[in-house]
Design a protein around this nucleic acid. Sequence first.
DNA 1: AGTAAAATCTTTACAGTGGTAAGATGGCAT
DNA 2: ATGCCATCTTACCACTGTAAAGATTTTACT
Lengths: 202, 202
Amino acid sequence: MKTTPYHHGALREALLSAAETILRRDGLQALTLRATAREAGVSHAAPAYHFGDLTGLLTELAVSGMQRLTAEMRDIKASPDRRVWDAARAYVRFARANPAIFQLMFQSDRLDVTRPSFEEARRGAFLQLARTRGIDSPHPSLDDLGHITGGWSLAHGFAMLLLNGRVSILLAAAPPGTTVDDLFEAMLASAEKGLLHPPEPA
Amino acid sequence: MKTTPYHHGALREALLSAAETILRRDGLQALTLRATAREAGVSHAAPAYHFGDLTGLLTELAVSGMQRLTAEMRDIKASPDRRVWDAARAYVRFARANPAIFQLMFQSDRLDVTRPSFEEARRGAFLQLARTRGIDSPHPSLDDLGHITGGWSLAHGFAMLLLNGRVSILLAAAPPGTTVDDLFEAMLASAEKGLLHPPEPA
DNA sequence: AGTAAAATCTTTACAGTGGTAAGATGGCAT
DNA sequence: ATGCCATCTTACCACTGTAAAGATTTTACT
């Protein structure tokens, strides 16, 4: 390992790693092409060579996140009737553990959603989602899709509202000591019974 | 109305209107302080005087959106047992009619959530949300909050997934001719029965 | 081995942006 | 009429993305 060889050797991976470091440490605002280059110790134009533009870099980061989320969903070892619950929990857990990357994954105005790597990651995530819900058919019924959509929307909506600070106002109105997990479990319980029916008055 | 008087008279409102025009026409990427100033025909430093910085301008736009969404939720005239459904429909309808503003409202990293106007709008939206769900108590039970959270997460998640192009992959797998509304209604039907139970095999 | 071509990274340059500070203008209260 | 103050403009700086051209190393081919 020489001092500073002209050719880095694995600069693309190093840049992605540097970008993720910045994203976690300083947020999306601070994640610029030049900051990534500084973090990796190369000239400011180097990232553009590997990713085209900032959108390209962000897209590859999002792809990396989607792959990891998909892998976590795939590793769920639960009985079929509990898998759906655990999938929702894993989804929200990933969002809380990787807030910036998770939000970037769904910030389509900063991504190039036509990039092949993104389309492939998106497809893989969808297949895993359907499999988690126990639906393997290539042509699911509308009821099946409604079911899939509901589970995804519920988990995704909660994750988004949580990361955007909207859940705090719910917790502020909750009984003292209520945690995010308490509220999430209460939501799942309500969803099990039938979400659109008011809870039975005690 | 003179040609270009030094004092605009109502520049703050004009700037907000110009900003919204840009947001709808060109997207959030193009919504800059200078573009807003150009659109309103003033110098590029004028917006900073009224809103402090770009975050301030975006926050006031988000506040405006939240107020309108709250108003639409308030105007729902439906029987109590159908109000919950209509609220979810109105929520998604607003998101589809105002995609950029809706997404901005929940992009907390570009907003100053400590701004008094924002906190007030957020509080008003929450109160309306609780009222829509038929819960007026200042100290709702955890079950009540789980119910509220579920309805909100379901509608919010669907809206977000839709605006980010994630629903298209669901529609691609759906029976030919299925629309977004079809899928949404199927989701609501699934949620009514109990979201986490698989649909009955026909 | 030798050389041309390609890949990789740097340097240089430019337009656009947010933000600040100082100056210009005009309304308004006294 | 005068002075204060809100409002808006001008000037400036640091930073960013992006493109173009140059420097350096690896690879391919004969």
